[in-house]
Design a protein around this nucleic acid. Structure first.
Lengths: 174, 174
DNA sequence: GTCTATACATAGATAGAC
DNA sequence: GTCTATCTATGTATAGAC
């Protein structure tokens, strides 16, 4: 799916790569959509666990940035997004996952901003968490198609803010 | 393609919707990939023209934000991204398009920031242009799967900065 | 559980009439 | 330029033996 797109993730190929015969896929999954949902669900659980661990570290904002800079994860996410756009079951699953991710990330950002004395009304944690996560993902998505213009400057800008926030503590910053 | 995904954009469906027979598709396009590339190329040209026009207006930063908030365009973009991940010809075309977009957007942002007296070293126009465009797109992508958490706060945050920048002129701001 | 065999739909693509 | 007809590959899914 990551390498050749969701359309290439067929029951035959999956079976072959798993070293079994095609019909066996339908013993475990009623339909291919059920399989996709299960892949998403399992991957999501692993991702969420890794995320929870990372976001309790020293520098949660930087962790957030690094976690969302995973090119391989980002490629898979693009496939699921495309799939979700026209398959109800996958859309529902992806929505649920995205919301859990946002909740976890937002909680971590809330703690981080608060301990650094930043006004949470002026910088709503949920917005800051979106900002960091989505920009990291955007860079990955662009890298996947070979675009690199502005990435260095963007990374530098983010790093500058992350440094500023990592250093700050109980001192209001803008 | 937008409604049912790239996998549903088959020669037969395209022919039917165009009111012709399937074989005719192959009279105009050697392969389906050639057709996809042509769709991308044509759409890109239209998009770029619209973008050039919008970015010469009063408030180019806000225009940039609005242009990239088009849900329909964003859905198509997701499909092409997914396609590009495993089809060389489409990846090359999408890369070329993305780079032209970034150039145009960056040029507009450069002018906007400069006339507002903002330090271009501290806020590289290419990074600011990425920031605005990619956050707008991220919101659209999430909306497509039904996620809305944080969108209002994010939009408010962006609007606040856009307002601040629209007001400023020759007065350094952070 | 895993297999063979197969039904059935639909895809991309081509040949050749008009 | 547009059509009918068709080839071939491949997809999802099922039946039934072991």
């Amino acid at each position: 799916m990551r390498d050749d797109g969701y359309a290439a993730a067929t029951s035959r190929r999956i079976a072959t790569e798993a070293g079994v015969k095609q019909a066996l896929v339908y013993y475990y999954f009623p339909t291919m959509d059920d399989l996709f949902v299960e892949v998403l669900r399992t991957g999501a659980e692993v991702s969420l666990e890794r995320m929870r661990a990372a976001l309790t570290e020293d520098d949660p904002l930087r962790s957030l940035w690094i976690i969302n800079s995973d090119t391989r994860l980002s490629a898979l996410n693009t496939e699921f997004m495309a799939l979700a756009n026209h398959r109800k079951a996958i859309r529902a699953e992806l929505k649920a996952y995205a919301e859990r991710v946002r909740d976890i990330e937002t909680a971590a950002v809330t703690v981080a901003l608060r301990t650094r004395g930043i006004d949470l009304n002026e910088y709503p944690p949920v917005a800051i968490s979106m900002l960091i996560a989505q920009i990291a993902r955007s860079i990955c998505n662009e890298e996947a198609v070979g675009v690199s213009a502005g990435h260095e400057q963007m990374r530098a800008l983010v790093e500058r803010y992350l440094d500023r926030l990592a250093g700050a503590s109980s001192t209001p910053a803008s």
